[in-house]
Design a binder for these strands. Structure first.
Lengths: 215, 215
DNA sequence: GGATGTGAAGTATTTCACAGCC
DNA sequence: GGCTGTGAAATACTTCACATCC
């Protein structure tokens, strides 16, 4: 019923697991481990070895029978597949409390995501410095996005502004959005969005606390 | 192969969607809407009406044929099902940059999650005040958890401490953990954990930016 | 007429199990 | 002997379609 001209080929769940494999492999690499089996990876990730092998098989044959996977080579291939072998420039929209925390979070840079621009609508903060970034007016979005070759944005604005901001980002050519507002914005086909919503996570866990206590 | 003595009954994906339904219903309630159809809910949530009806049918019959669902009643039932009709006391472990941001995040309280205790291992911050909470030593975990009837914890400690902290929390009777560290800790059957990891989210999106550009 | 609730049908995803290779 | 890669089987999840009721 929906447009499916982009041969979906690889299931979305598979793609969502690859970054986790990357994580573990990075850690193994740091620990000086050079070869790993799907069995061992599965233990660390709490998934079945078969799933790991199947997931990887969508992209090629990276292992050696009887031996396992070369940590270095698999790492390399996964980075290539995910497109994280190069740097990505990222914009942050909204520099309130949450936005500031994001800008100051040191975890993005080591993985190749460079926060290179900040935006806000609030006149009081525009022009000020937040975590080493000059805060631009949202009106300058297009020019800064073009200039700095930004294709990813992190959104941390109030709920009431979120859809509007997302629309503007998409209009300026942003292809991937990480949204921290407690709303699921609509985006057109071809634009990716992931929502980070701790309250939803908590609420889905309380269900299980209850049902196993009494009931 | 794994222990499945807890009649799984309701699929986990279904439970994970209920909080989103709750969100939308809350908003409809605020807007003064009293009745809603699965059709209308589906549009707002970008899911099929059939899925909403099926999801709800795991828990009972809440609608009226020819009419739809009473926003008030459905809200009530969902809150009951998810166990968010009462307050939950929550502990935050780790009050570094990230932990502070979490403590100061105003979004938990309106949904009934009360941050009532903070913990850290760092002697320099123990005893100090963070966002209105006194920071305890982790050594006092058990007594505070018992005293304040805490069953949920938010973890924001360095990767290297995370598994250890999670183990201690579980040992003290914590049933649900929201983990912000970039690692997937192991927990025993019966304990729920959700991981918030913005880098993984970003990495799963770059895959799509790449594959639709060139390739 | 219009919308729910739900078996049945259709898809998607996971796991099995084993041939093939190191 | 050990482990990958992969069709086939099993399971999980979604959507259809319609009887049922307001």
């Amino acid at each position: 019923m929906s447009t499916d001209f982009s041969r979906s080929e690889v299931p979305e769940v598979v793609v969502s697991r690859l970054p986790q494999y990357l994580r573990i492999l990075n850690r193994l690499m740091e620990d000086g481990i050079t070869v790993v089996s799907s069995q061992q990876l599965g233990e660390k990730l709490q998934v079945t070895p078969a799933q790991i092998r199947k997931d990887l098989s969508y992209f090629g044959r990276f292992g050696k029978q009887g031996r396992g996977y070369s940590v270095h080579d698999l790492l390399d291939r996964l980075r290539q597949i995910l497109g994280v072998n190069a740097f990505w420039n990222v914009a942050v929209v909204g520099v309130g409390r949450l936005g500031r925390a994001i800008v100051n979070y040191p975890g993005f840079t080591p993985d190749g995501f460079h926060l290179v621009a900040a935006f806000d609508v609030n006149k009081d903060v525009i022009g000020s410095d937040v975590g080493g970034l000059m805060v631009h007016s949202l009106e300058n979005l297009r020019s800064v996005v073009d200039e700095r070759k930004i294709s990813i944005a992190i959104v941390a604005v109030p709920v009431s502004d979120t859809q509007e901001v997302v629309d503007q980002l998409v209009a300026c050519g942003i292809r991937a959005i990480l949204n921290y507002a407690p709303i699921i914005p609509h985006v057109r086909e071809g634009v990716r969005i992931r929502n980070i919503d701790p309250v939803l996570s908590l609420q889905s866990m309380t269900y299980y606390i209850n049902t196993s206590n009494d009931d």
